[in-house]
Design a protein around this nucleic acid. Structure first.
Lengths: 250, 250
DNA sequence: TATTTATTGAGTCAATATGACACAATAATA
DNA sequence: TATTATTGTGTCATATTGACTCAATAAATA
């Protein structure tokens, strides 16, 4: 699909959504990024808001277009509204590489205020799809990010900070992990988001005490050590905890 | 100031900020609202974003204009992006009462996506100032809200929910309480936000254990019972807790 | 002036949770 | 068969929580 066929008059001007899509693979938290056509920068999957579309729906559409996934955890976390955020000098080379007609050129030179979302998806279920603005779509380790356009590094950092806070009163892992998983995988997710190591026995005790995990008969196999039990989330309890919160101060 | 003198071309189209300004008085959490010119509805203090102004700065400006206060706690908490949120039927009577010229009429008929902020201010320090769209500006008890326009009731509810979550990892009370206050006032704030009663001795123990309160020599006086000690916040500790979080899960 | 009332400051105590460990069990590999 | 890495389970001292008690006291009232 050619960018120049996009009719920008369908969108709300000056507004966009950007989606920090997290996946988990090889015991690592990963982010889905798009390669810009200048072969230098990467960017977050994002898009514009149709004139009769809700902002949340636009974010869902972006997620669907890049991952073909629906009904995963999608959470708005912050607005990025600095007037200079999308008008850094680097945009010039970028714009040249996109080969835009006059109208689209003007569209991209606007000031954009963007609404940041993060979503948690099951890595294995995703076949990344690039958008018309990009060359490719790939996963990156959260601590090995490439060069990013605009304030997209800040947005990713903001998503992590938001998750770190949400961890204190919400369960995490559903949608990010496969249906059955060893507890160590869940611990790795917590450790990545919190940015520090946790004590395994204490982590397990705490998680199991929430009553959100169901122990499975099957055993994971393949490595040179004792095989761990697999667990799955009890969705009913999971959604109750999401709604009611855990670890309340009072 | 006449509304019709406002030059709407100075603003980002389709975007606004709304600010849920909380105050605390008579042991009650209160919200600052503006009376619409139709003499029927009330609304949140809000405004538009200047073309070269950050969204945060617009929210600060709204707060400054209505309360003459700067540097208080101001937190973005959610975006309200439903395409029909500002175009309910009730707007017609409202628009008539505003006596707008053609250009402004069009401006108000736009779809608006609004960024919700909440702020915590010291009730006694505020002299509410109405804006050009409103007749007056007044405080309302959080549980005795008047009829509100659009989705403003949802926005207030969202601010409360956000605060309820923030309570679990952030201190609260600075900017909302006077410099010296009895512990019971702080407890009332927590109880209002959480929507339930707390045990006094346990609340005091928990609060004092955070090390954020300094006991003062002075005693509060006036009521027919033992006089309580007054406390003040240790700002250094307060800001550290705001940044680092309290009550972490791990 | 003595008594009553409301509310505070301080504390108890059992139950529960947390942080920091120890150690045997076991799946593949050497 | 021994080695290695990692798991399941458990211990234990300490800290925190929830549900209480009760004497102290400022003003109102009798």
């Amino acid at each position: 699909m050619d960018i120049n066929n996009v009719d920008t008059s369908l969108f709300m001007p000056g507004l966009s959504v950007d989606n920090v899509i997290f996946g988990f693979h090889d015991n690592q938290l990963k982010v889905l990024l798009l390669a810009c056509k200048d072969h230098k920068h990467w960017m977050l999957p994002g898009g514009y808001i149709l004139k009769e579309e809700s902002v949340d729906a636009a974010a869902e559409r972006v997620l669907l277009d890049r991952t073909s996934l629906k009904k995963v955890y999608l959470q708005e976390f912050s607005v990025f509204g600095d007037p200079r955020r999308s008008r850094e000098s680097l945009i010039k080379g970028l714009m040249k590489s996109m080969d835009l007609d006059t109208e689209l050129h003007k569209w991209f030179l606007q000031r954009f205020i963007t609404v940041g979302y993060y979503s948690l998806v099951e890595f294995e279920k995703v076949t990344p799809v690039p958008d018309p603005l990009s060359l490719s779509c790939d996963w990156f380790d959260i601590d090995k990010l490439p060069l990013l356009i605009f304030d997209h590094k800040t947005i990713i950092h903001g998503a992590l900070t938001a998750m770190r806070q949400h961890l204190n009163y919400q369960p995490i892992g559903l949608n990010l992990l496969p249906a059955h998983f060893p507890l160590k995988s869940l611990q790795s997710i917590y450790e990545t988001i919190l940015g520090r190591k946790l004590d395994r026995p204490n982590f397990n005790r705490k998680m199991l005490s929430l009553g959100v995990l169901t122990k499975k008969e099957k055993l994971y196999t393949g490595a040179a050590h004792k095989a761990p039990f697999l667990y799955s989330f009890n969705k009913k309890v999971y959604y109750r905890l999401l709604k009611e919160g855990i670890n309340e101060m009072f």
